[in-house]
Design a protein around this nucleic acid. Structure first.
Lengths: 100, 100
DNA sequence: AATATATTTAGCATTTTTGCTAAATATATA
DNA sequence: TATATATTTAGCAAAAATGCTAAATATATT
C-alpha cells in the first residue's frame, strides 16, 4: 500500500530536507549564485564558480534537488539547474509561522 | 586589535551559526516547545520533554545559544532558557531577502 | 558538615558529512 | 568509428556531528 503521509508528516519531512540542505554554506551559496544569474545555470557553470571538484558539487546539487530547492532539466549533454525560489520561501515561511 | 568585522561578514557568520543550529530536528523542536510553552523554560523542563540524556541536551542548548536563538538566565541552581524569536525571524528574513 | 538537586564538562564511540580521485556513462563531433 | 565534452557513480579517507556514561561543579536543604 502507499505510504499515506499526513499533511503534517509531509511538512516535517520538508523541513528536515530543506534545513539539512541549507546547513552547508556552499549549498546556500549555490542558491544565491543561481538567483543572481537569473535562476538557471548548467552544472558546469555552477562548478566553475566554486573551488570544488566536480563530483563534490554534483553531490551538493543532488542534495539541493532532493530538498526541492532546485530542479534539473537535461538538454543533450548538459544539465540545467533551476532555482525553485517559490518552494524555498514557502517552506521557510511555513516553518517561521510557528514563531510569529 | 579588535577583529573589525564588516556588516556583511557579521551577517555571513550569523547565517552560518543559525542554519547550523537549525539543521538538527531536535534543536528545531526545542524552539517550538519553548514557543508553545510561553517562551521560557528551565533546562530540566526542556530535558524532560525529550528522550535525550541530559548532557546531550545541554550541548544542543549551547548550540542554540551560540546562534543567538535562545538566551540563558541562571537563577540559583536552575538555568532559564528563553526563546529569541525576534532574532530568529530577523536572521531568516535577512537571508530570504535574496530570494524575493 | 553531609546530602540532595540541577546542570555542565570531559572523554569516548558511532554515525554522518564532506571532499577527493579514478572509473563509468552518455552525448556530440571529427 | 574514434575522440572529445559534460557529468555522474563508486569508493575511500578525513572531519564533523551526535549520543552516551562517568565525573565534576555549584547551589540548596537537612
Amino acid at each position: 500500500m502507499a505510504p499515506k503521509k499526513t499533511i503534517g508528516e509531509q511538512q516535517l519531512e520538508d523541513f528536515d530536507l530543506v534545513f539539512k540542505a541549507l546547513a552547508h554554506p556552499s549549498r546556500r551559496n549555490v542558491l544565491t549564485v543561481l538567483q543572481a544569474r537569473g535562476g538557471t545555470m548548467t552544472a558546469g557553470d555552477i562548478v566553475s564558480r566554486f573551488s570544488y571538484a566536480w563530483p563534490t558539487m554534483t553531490r551538493h546539487l543532488q542534495q539541493l534537488e532532493q530538498a526541492g530547492l532546485i530542479s534539473v532539466d537535461k538538454k543533450s549533454r548538459e544539465q540545467y539547474y533551476t532555482l525553485n525560489a517559490a518552494r524555498l520561501n514557502e517552506v521557510m515561511n511555513n516553518w517561521l509561522k510557528w514563531f510569529e
